[in-house]
Design a protein around this nucleic acid. Structure first.
Lengths: 207, 207
DNA sequence: CACGTAACCTGAAAT
DNA sequence: GATTTCAGGTTACGT
C-alpha cells in the first residue's frame, strides 16, 4: 500500500506550517522517457501552468529553475515549453539528476516550494510504490529531509496519480489528504522521517 | 598503404613553393555526422584556432569563409564557434559541398591556402583511403588541381595520424615528412597529380 | 507548413 | 581522475 508521505493525517495546515518546511506542489511518476535518453522531464501541463508559468515574457528560450534537493544540494534545470509536443519540460540538467538519484521508470519526483518564499523551490523523489510497507526501505531509497503539506486543495484530484482510497479534510482553507489503510503504528511522523531521512547527509532525522 | 600526398620526399620548401600552388593546412576525415543531417563540419579545435582564428572581434555570430575547390569554383561557408559543444564548425554552405562532391563518411577533406596570399583559401577532398594503391582511382575519386606542401613543421607529430614509419627532413625552416616504404616508381610528382587531377574540369593535369 | 539549417545539449572517449 | 574534445543527438526557427 502506497503511503502518501506528505499528506499526514490530522494535522492542521497551520500546525503543519509551523514545523514543516515545504509546501507540496505536485508529483510526477517518471515514465521510461523521463529517465531515458531524451534527457527531459515532461511536466504535466496543469501543474506547469499553475506553478511554473511561462508567460511569454518568461523567455521564448525558457528559463532556468533552481531547486534544492533533500541534502540541500542545488539543481538548476532549464525549463521551457516545446511547441512541437505542446508540453512543458525540464531539459538541461535533468539527466544529471536522474543519474545521481538513480531514478528509474515508476519512481516519483516531488516538487515543492518554501511556504514563506515561493521562489524557493525544492525537488524530491521516492522509489516507485509497492514495497515501502512490505519491507524496510534500503539506504538511499528516497529523498527529502523534511515534511510536506499540500499547496492547494486539489492535488491530482483529476490526475491518474490520485490514490482513490485516500481521505481528504479541509482545514483553514487547505485540503489535507491522506491514506486511511494500513496506518503506521505509533507516531505519524516517525516513519515518514525515518523513511525520508535515513540517508540524509544533513542529519535532519527524527531523533 | 596510404600515400601522404602532400608530404613528398626530397623537395625543399623553396623548390616546392616555386611550382606548388597550395600550402596544406590540415585534413579532416569525415565522420558520419559531418556528412549527415546535422549539416555541419566540425573542425578540430587545434586546427581551427591555428588557421581560422575567431578572435572575438571576428564576430560572435561567426564569419563567412571563402574557399576555392579543385575546379576554381568558389565555396562560402559560415564558420563559427559553438559554445554549447566548445567546437568550431562550418555550417551554412557545408551540406551543399557534401552533396555536390558526393562525400561520404571516411572521405577526407583537405584545407589549404595560397602560399603568397594567406587569405586565399582552398578546399579539396579525396575518397577514403585503402584503395588508392591497390587499384587505379575511378573518375571523380578525388579533387584538387594542384600540389601541396605542409604549412608547418609539426604536422600531427603527437597525433594518431602520424605514420610512425615516416621520415622527416628539416629544410629552410620547414620540416618535410614522407613514407620510406613502397616508394612510387618514377617521378615523385606524377602519381600525385594523376590522382588528384584526373577528373579536373579545368584541365590542370600533369601533362 | 514542411524542410533546411542554426544553435544547443550530452555522453563517451581521449588526454 | 578531472577536464577537454567532439560525434551524435535534440529543438527552434526562418523561408
Amino acid at each position: 500500500m502506497q503511503i502518501n508521505h506528505w499528506l499526514s493525517p490530522p494535522i492542521s495546515a497551520a500546525a503543519a506550517k509551523i514545523h514543516l518546511s515545504k509546501e507540496a506542489l505536485f508529483e510526477k511518476p517518471l515514465t521510461p522517457s523521463d529517465v531515458g535518453k531524451l534527457n527531459r522531464l515532461v511536466i504535466p501541463k496543469q501543474h506547469a501552468e499553475r506553478y511554473f508559468p511561462l508567460n511569454g515574457g518568461g523567455g521564448e528560450k525558457g528559463l532556468l529553475l533552481g531547486f534544492e534537493d533533500e541534502a540541500g544540494k542545488s539543481w538548476r534545470f532549464r525549463y521551457s515549453y516545446w511547441n512541437s509536443s505542446q508540453s512543458y519540460v525540464l531539459t538541461k540538467g535533468w539527466s544529471r539528476f536522474v543519474k545521481e538519484k538513480r531514478l528509474d521508470a515508476g519512481d516519483i519526483v516531488v516538487f515543492a516550494r518554501h511556504p514563506d518564499d515561493l521562489g524557493r523551490l525544492f525537488i524530491g523523489w521516492r522509489r516507485r510504490g509497492g514495497q515501502e510497507a512490505a519491507a524496510p526501505p534500503p539506504p538511499n531509497s528516497g529523498g527529502w529531509s523534511g515534511l510536506l503539506y499540500p499547496a492547494h486543495s486539489h492535488v491530482d484530484i483529476h490526475g491518474k496519480e490520485r490514490n482513490r482510497n485516500s481521505k481528504r479534510l479541509r482545514l483553514f482553507g487547505v485540503n489535507l489528504e491522506w491514506d486511511e489503510e494500513e496506518p503506521t503504528s505509533g507516531s505519524i511522523e516517525e516513519p515518514f522521517l525515518e523513511y525520508y531521512s535515513s540517508h540524509c547527509p544533513t542529519g535532519h532525522t527524527a531523533s
